[in-house]
Amino acid sequence: MARAETPLNTPISDITFTVFDTETTGFAVGRHDRLIEIGAVHVKGNRVLETETFHMHVNPERSIPPEITELTGISMETIEHAPNSLEAIEAYLHYNEKANSTIWVGHYVSFDLLVIKKELQRHQYRIDMPTTIDTLDLIGYISPSKHMLDLEIYASQFGTRIYNRHEALGDALTTAHLFCELLYHLENRGKRTFADLLAISDMSKRNIQF
């Protein structure tokens, strides 16, 4: 996938964002834990396009721990006939390409990017990783006193909708509505262009190794 560059002076309202989330067998995705679900939804014009969602379970080709099944509702039966991670990621990329969306948004997005990158590496596949926006950075800019990481807490504090937690699509939808509220606050502070958004959510400032 070739990475398309969005002009820095592009109004935020003109950009189609992909808000996404992943579920995994655990947090050690750089080693043995694997992807089991991807969910995503597009945002444009400060509006969540709920009719344009993406959701897919993924066969991790390993067992799912009981505590993960309890948390996510995803069992071995759920993923028995699901595609492998490469097939699922390719479908997700196609979903983005159809909407001409090259900017991904997530809540603690560095983890979800790591999941995608490690799964592609396992299949000896590589893509140019997209520009990303982390809602945690936007929250830190708007309300610097907030230190919790929990998505549901933030959604409650900003008065946005909360969907099924620890389900990839549910968390993506929750994040998308939170993201729209954050964009509204940014607009009120005069932050209206892609350059403004990048200055607030800059992955290069974070010491994260992928």
Rank of each mutant, 00 (worst) to 15 (best):
M1C: 11
R3K: 13
A4Q: 15
A4K: 09
A4T: 13
E5N: 07
N9R: 13
P11Q: 05
I12F: 06
I12Q: 04
S13Y: 01
S13Q: 08
D14N: 10
T16N: 10
T16Y: 07
F17V: 10
T22I: 07
E23T: 06
F27D: 10
F27K: 11
A28F: 13
V29K: 14
H32V: 05
R34W: 08
E37G: 11
I38H: 11
I38L: 09
I38Y: 09
I38E: 11
G39H: 09
V41K: 13
K44V: 07
K44W: 07
K44H: 08
R47Q: 13
L49R: 12
L49I: 07
E52P: 04
M56H: 14
M56D: 10
N59F: 06
E61Y: 08
E61G: 12
R62P: 07
S63Y: 13
S63N: 15
E67T: 02
E67P: 01
E70K: 05
G73C: 03
I74W: 01
I79D: 09
P83A: 05
N84K: 04
N84F: 01
N84H: 07
A88L: 00
E90N: 02
A91G: 13
Y95W: 06
Y95N: 08
Y95S: 13
N96V: 05
A99I: 03
S101C: 04
T102H: 03
I103M: 02
I103H: 05
G106I: 01
F111N: 05
D112Q: 10
D112G: 14
D112M: 06
L113H: 03
L114R: 14
K117R: 13
K117T: 04
K118G: 02
R126N: 14
R126D: 11
I127G: 02
D128T: 03
M129T: 15
T131R: 12
T131C: 11
I133Q: 08
T135R: 02
L136R: 03
D137G: 02
L138P: 00
L138R: 00
I139Y: 10
I139A: 01
S145A: 00
M148P: 07
D150T: 03
D150C: 06
Y154K: 11
Q157G: 01
F158Q: 01
I162G: 01
H166R: 09
A172K: 04
L173T: 10
C180R: 01
E181R: 12
L183E: 01
R189C: 06
T193M: 07
F194P: 08
A195W: 00
D196M: 07
L197Q: 06
L197A: 07
L198P: 07
I200T: 02
M203D: 12
S204I: 05
K205I: 06
